[in-house]
Amino acid sequence: MMLIDCPYCGPRNETEFGYGGEAHVAYPEDPYALSDAKWAEFLFYRDNPKGDFAERWVHNGGCRKWFNAVRDTITYQFKATYPAGSPRPNVSGGSQ
């Protein structure tokens, strides 16, 4: 069992959480101006680095709030969790 530290509820079992993909992906300023290829790139293409990676998570078995986390994709260790809308904290190492 792994504990994930929800920034609103504190540490909880990993089974209470859902993964939401890459964090800090900006919505296009004018989505109607995008070609189909650029729209598909926005929707489906994400980074997949080895090392520290900012991700979105939801605490669906608790407060049901979205938050961001920096997780090492090699060791699966969570380096930091922080509320959605907050800037990414500076953690040592990583690729992003």
Rank of each mutant, 00 (worst) to 15 (best):
F17L: 03
M2E: 05
G20T: 01
A33W: 02
W57H: 06
Y76W: 08
E14Q: 12
D47P: 03
L34Q: 03
P28Q: 03
G51C: 09
A69Q: 11
F53Y: 13
L3F: 08
R12H: 12
Y19D: 03
P7S: 08
F42A: 09
A84G: 01
S95D: 05
E16C: 08
W66V: 13
P49V: 09
E29V: 11
Q77S: 12
W57F: 15
E55A: 13
K79H: 14
L3H: 08
I74G: 11
F53T: 05
F67I: 04
L3W: 05
P28G: 02
F42W: 15
G20S: 05
D47Q: 15
E41F: 12
A40N: 13
T75K: 12
A80G: 08
S92F: 14
C9M: 03
N60Q: 11
T73E: 06
Y27N: 08
V25P: 02
G10Q: 02
E55I: 15
P49R: 07
G94D: 10
L43F: 00
W57R: 05
S92Q: 15
M1S: 13
R88H: 01
T15Y: 00
K79Q: 14
Q96L: 14
L34T: 05
L43R: 04
E29Y: 02
N48V: 00
H24K: 09
V70K: 10
A84C: 07
V91Q: 09
C6Q: 01
K38E: 14
I74R: 15
D5K: 14
R46K: 08
Y8F: 10
N90K: 15
T81D: 06
S92R: 15
P49T: 05
T81A: 09
C9L: 03
I4R: 05
G62N: 04
